[in-house]
């Protein structure tokens, strides 16, 4: 429980949080309460990992960030603006936030290249030629320059998820959200996707990542948030969370993971 272990570099620099969840609550239309007074901050350039058992509300929380789910109480501050206010245009907020889904959610009726270009063309009204140039650049960046003309269904899961990352990047977002980006992948494809994400982190992209890849969280995250039952259990640097978890529930969660697949990356 030393100070150095708990130092949050980005927060120390004095920058405003890029995203601030300030006591947000959320319930599904069927009445199921999924988030209760959840608060955490994401600073520019930071990689924040959300951990927690299944059903703890990680996906709901990340969807609240780009307003795919409406919060029922609390404030969501994006780039200094309270976007829970009534007059805020959600579409404008989403244009600044990229999202990558567990099941890729590529558009099956479009070529890979068009999948990547469609956001800028439709949402940002960019000229097509410009959008396609950018799309080609991004496909090269995720190592798929030769796959632009095929349909998504002709790619492997790992390749599809890399296209999905390129598609989100094409909007040149301020922050990228990842909801379990490797959970649907065969084990041998997890590495190629994590490598792309690691490269993004190194380039300084702000990222919020829901993941069960503890090694990734340990090595890449700047900040880790542990959730259970729609509430924040504890947060801290990965070193501190993984080496000196304070809460019994965090220890129990890690214990279960270790039991399952022996993945805890401390040793």
């Amino acid at each position: 429980m030393t100070d150095s272990l708990d130092t949050r570099k980005m927060a120390m620099s004095g920058a405003e949080p890029l995203v601030l969840l300030d006591g947000i609550s959320h319930a599904y239309p069927n009445g199921k309460v999924s988030l209760t007074e959840l608060s955490f901050a994401v600073h520019p350039g930071e990689v924040v990992c959300l951990l927690g058992p299944s059903g703890s509300g990680k996906s709901t929380a990340i969807r609240c960030v780009n307003m795919l789910e409406p919060v029922t109480a609390g404030r969501l501050v994006f780039e200094g603006i309270d976007v829970t206010a009534k007059d805020v245009n959600q579409v404008e907020v989403r244009k600044r936030v990229g999202m990558v889904f567990q099941n890729f959610e590529l558009f099956p009726h479009m070529s890979v290249l068009k999948n990547v270009a469609i956001g800028p063309i439709v949402s940002l009204k960019r000229p097509k030629a410009e959008a396609y140039d950018l799309a080609r650049e991004l496909l090269a960046k995720v190592g798929l320059s030769d796959k632009g003309d095929v349909l998504p269904s002709q790619l492997s899961g790992g390749q599809q998820q890399r296209v999905a990352i390129a598609r989100a990047l094409a909007m040149q977002p301020d922050v990228m959200l990842f909801d379990e980006p490797t959970s649907a992948l065969d084990p041998e494809m997890v590495g190629e996707v994590l490598a792309v994400m690691r490269k993004l982190a190194e380039e300084g992209m702000t990222m919020v990542v829901v993941t069960h890849e503890m090694r990734f969280a340990r090595n890449v995250a700047d900040w880790v948030v542990v959730m259970e039952d729609g509430r924040l259990v504890e947060e801290g640097t990965p070193e501190r969370i993984f080496e000196q978890p304070r809460m019994e529930r965090t220890r129990a969660f890690f214990g279960k993971l270790e039991e399952q697949d022996g993945v805890l990356p401390t040793g």
Partner: peptide
């Protein structure tokens, strides 16, 4: 519905999601 989410997450309006993502499929 996750296809709709993917479209919205790309900054499309609901109408754009319908005409560009849902309707063609």
């Amino acid at each position: 519905s996750t296809q709709t989410r993917a479209g919205l997450a790309l900054g499309m309006t609901r109408t754009q999601v319908v005409t560009r993502v849902v309707a063609p499929q």
